[in-house]
Each structure stands twice: as structure tokens, then as C-alpha cells.
Simulated assay, not measured.
Amino acid sequence: MLRVLFVGDVYGQPGRRVLATHLPTIRSQFDFVIVNGENAAGGFGLHREAADAILKAGGDCITLGNHAWHHKDVFSLMLDEERYPIVRPLNYADPGTPGVGWRTFQVRGADGTQERLTVVNVLGRVFMEAVANPFRAVDELLEREGLGNVFVDMHAEATSEKAALAWHLDGRVAAVIGTHTHVVTADTRILPGGTAFQTDVGFTGPSNSIIGADPEGPIQKFLTERPHRFGVAGGPAELNGVIVQMEGGKALAAERYRYAEEG
């Protein structure tokens, strides 16, 4: 049995800070830790400093999302596969897209046995940029042998699209956990076929914010109906995640996890 922690979108320096201070204190409780680093670099994308911070804190794999290409650093990071276990969205149609959309890891469980864990990252298409069909992309991937326990990070805006993918994959993957909206949903469950699902894991970043941003920026945008710069909020931060226990390609248990800094 594997005990996997999935940490929601790390947002800027406050997200990296709470990850660095809290994840090491709980890391020994898990066999593998997946961290979404989609917003780790100033709220947009991933750069080397952010990737190093995530891995140093105890992350074993970094997933991305629609801001995957925001920093040029990410291209060289993806080429260094041994040092940087990054999984970018699978469903880019261009075969020349840098990086990989899935990785398989050999993970040693608490009892000493090893199981395979495949981490997949896909982008939704509803209210998002144009990409290939995520349903078809995962279907094609699952035709491969030897994937073991499959964990899918579904980076999407629409709750219906996330739920539809989870039900479509029910019984064929161990987990489908949503990212992108930065708001934790209270629908953690195991679907009838044995797939863990939660619409959105939430984010890891500043608590007193509008999904990570200093409130003034979004407020001005809504008030004036004009573009406005969004800065990363300060103050105490929180870490949100989902813990999934899995074995033989199915989820045995799933629960939400939250830690909040004082202040």
C-alpha cells in the first residue's frame, strides 16, 4: 500500500515558505509527495529557484498547468529529467512540446515492498486555452503496460469537466484530483470503481488573498473593468492537500489535509 500526499498549487514566495517549513515536519508520514508548482514563481509558472525549493522541502514530483511556460527556466529544467521530476500537461497536441506529461516512479511503501506510481498532468478545455482532448489523451496513455497506480492531476476551471474525467476514469486510475481554482472543495470521496476524487485540492499560499493575489488588484479589475496588475499577497499562508492511500491501482482511502500558519 502506498500513502501519497498531493499538495495543491504552490503560490509565490508565501506558498514556498509554508511548504518549506511544514512539509518536512510531516514528510515521513508519506511514501510519495506530489506538488503542483503551477504558480510557485511569483504566482505564474515555475522557475529554477521554485523547483529547487519544492524538491528540498520533500516533494518527489512537480506537476504544472496552464502557466507551465511562463518562465524560460522551465525548458532547461525539463531537459534535466534526473534532477527535476517535472510533469507538464499531457494533452498538448504538438509532438515537439518540451517535457513529458506523465512519469512512472518505483516507490517503496512502509512495509518495504515496491509499487509503481504513475503521475499524470492534464489540462481542461472549458474556459481554458485550446489544447487536445484530455479524456482521449488519458485513454491513450492507459493502453500502456506497467503504469501501476495512476494519479491524475486534472488542472481545469470547470467542476463539471473535472468530475466527468473522474467518472470516465473510475476503476482505471487510483486518483483524479483537481487543481487550478485554488479553492478547496468538500467532495473528497472514493468513486464506485475505486478512484479517489476531489474537485479541487485548493492551494498553498497566502490566506488573506483572492486566490493568492493581494486583494487590491482583483478588486480594482472588477471595479474598473480594466486590466490591473496582480501582486502576491503577504501575511500568513496555508498548505492544502489530499492524502490518498492506494494499492493495486485502486484507492483505499482519501482525505483532505490543511495546515495554516498563525498570525
Rank of each mutant, 00 (worst) to 15 (best):
L5R: 07
V119D: 05
V131A: 10
P98A: 07
G124T: 09
H70G: 00
G194A: 13
H71P: 00
R108P: 01
A57M: 09
E247M: 03
G194Q: 10
L123C: 01
V119A: 08
V152C: 07
E161K: 04
L23T: 01
L5E: 04
T104S: 12
L46Y: 00
Y257S: 04
E145V: 03
T185R: 14
R189G: 03
G59L: 05
I243H: 07
V183T: 15
A50L: 02
D200M: 06
D187Y: 04
L79T: 07
V201I: 15
F230R: 01
A158S: 09
T181E: 02
N240F: 00
P236S: 13
W167C: 10
E49K: 14
Q13K: 15
E247L: 03
A156H: 11
V119T: 10
Q106S: 12
E157C: 14
S207I: 15
M246F: 01
D200C: 04
V126C: 06
T104V: 13
E115D: 06
H71T: 06
H70D: 13
T118H: 05
H228V: 03
V18K: 10
P85K: 06
G58T: 11
Q245E: 14
G45L: 04
A166H: 09
A137V: 04
I34V: 15
H180F: 02
A20W: 00
D139R: 13
G205H: 13
N149T: 09
E262T: 11
Q106K: 10
V232P: 00
H228A: 08
T118E: 09
H70K: 14
M128T: 09
D80R: 12
P14R: 11
E129N: 13
L2R: 04
W167H: 15
Y92F: 15
D60L: 02
A57K: 07
S209H: 02
A253V: 04
